[in-house]
């Protein structure tokens, strides 16, 4: 959490995650290079820089698809959160691989000539009236650069979670540009149908998973509670598992997480102050509500992160009537302390 900014707040999981990512990237590049050099050898050998350009380019596309699939998959199973947790490192790795691809393209195809290498690759392609697939790739890389450069929590805190999130939605524009870059570039030179099939599978996976996750979220959001006439009944106490929450959708923009812990109930906004993670899918860990995405924590009684951290989220009033939980849908300002509702042994307000 944002007590102080370090370049990377390392922990064992992040180290293992990064080692696996780097190992996979190296394994991909070496495999591509080795197979390409064995299949096309002697007089039929592909120029090593072109082999490297292709290895890096295809590796970047594979990484991008993995990155884009993690998010929606995590909506279906919390077991994917282990991959989601350090996804920004995966994103930065992808950006580095894509940048190396671009640098080699500019240096090799645009270099050694009578023009500035970047101009030779970009302006020439644009001016000559064809589909400017190099330009698509360049714009995508600029978007990825902005995302990689602002991926640190420093920017998240200073730009604000909402703006930061919107900025990082640019990944979908960049992804579309990458697909065009490949379709009008590499796939017009390399006509084997395998490329089209692989890219098609990738696009279908990304689009299909996002669509499925979106439909799931839409269905959940549809189950809203009428909160226009004061306190609302959010259901029986017994239906809320210990140390877990029930999510109450008030409307499309607002939802509340009602947590049960140590014989008490507390309600906070369902939206984590860090990256907007679904707190209601989290758990009480060490007495704190813990976000499933990155482990940000809040004290259930006041919606504040435990000292020295400073994040705050809105809190809500609760009471127990009979064996049902009632929620006041009017939020209190972030960090407002509210006495938890006590649960008697028979499930009533104590």
């Amino acid at each position: 959490m944002t007590n102080q900014y370090k370049l990377v707040q390392w922990n064992p999981h992040k180290k293992i995650y990064d080692l696996i990512v780097l190992g996979s990237v190296l394994a991909y590049l070496l495999t591509f290079f080795a197979v390409g050099s064995i299949v096309f050898r002697g007089d039929h050998a592909i120029s090593p820089p072109i082999l490297a350009i292709r290895a890096l380019g295809t590796c970047a596309i594979v990484l991008l698809h993995v990155i884009l699939c993690i998010g929606p998959l995590a909506r279906f199973t919390p077991r994917m959160n282990a991959l989601l947790y350090n996804r920004r490192h995966l994103g930065v790795t992808f950006f580095c691989v894509a940048s190396l691809h671009a640098l080699l393209v500019v240096g090799y195809y645009g270099g050694f000539g009578v023009q500035n290498p970047l101009v030779a690759v970009l302006a020439g392609a644009y001016r000559d009236g064809g589909v400017p697939y190099e330009f698509f790739g360049f714009v995508a890389l600029v978007i990825f650069f902005v995302m990689a450069a602002t991926s640190h929590d420093f920017w998240l805190a200073n730009l604000g979670a909402s703006f930061w999130k919107t900025l990082h939605m640019g990944v979908y524009i960049a992804y579309a540009l990458v697909v065009l870059h490949v379709a009008f570039g590499a796939m017009r030179s390399e006509t084997a149908s395998v490329y089209a099939i692989l890219l098609g599978i990738g696009v279908l996976c990304v689009a299909g998973l996002h669509l499925a996750a979106g439909i799931r979220a839409w269905r959940q959001d549809r189950k809203t509670f009428d909160h226009t006439s004061g306190w609302i009944d959010v259901g029986p106490v017994a239906e809320i598992p210990e140390d877990r929450a029930r999510i109450v959708h008030l409307d499309n923009a607002r939802s509340v997480a009602v947590f049960r812990y140590e014989g008490k109930l507390s309600a906070v906004s369902n939206v984590c102050a860090h990256q907007g993670g679904p707190l209601g899918e989290g758990k009480i860990v060490g007495g704190c509500i813990t976000c499933p995405w990155h482990g940000y924590q809040y004290l259930p009684g006041c919606g504040q992160s435990p000292p020295p951290y400073t994040e705050k989220i809105p809190t809500y009033e609760l009471r127990v009537e009979g064996d049902h939980v009632l929620l006041n849908p009017l939020p209190k300002p972030p960090g407002t302390k509210i006495e938890p509702a006590n649960i008697s042994k028979d499930g009533r307000d104590g």
Binding site: Y28, T31, F32, F33, V35, H44, R54, V62, S189, L198
Partner: peptide
């Protein structure tokens, strides 16, 4: 998942590298 992903990624690398167009005998 990591093992399956790694196998898939290496498989993709092999397939893409194998079906590249022959550049000729220059």
């Amino acid at each position: 998942l990591v093992v399956l992903l790694a196998l898939w990624i290496l498989g993709v690398a092999m397939v893409i590298a194998m079906v590249m167009r022959n550049p000729g005998d220059a």
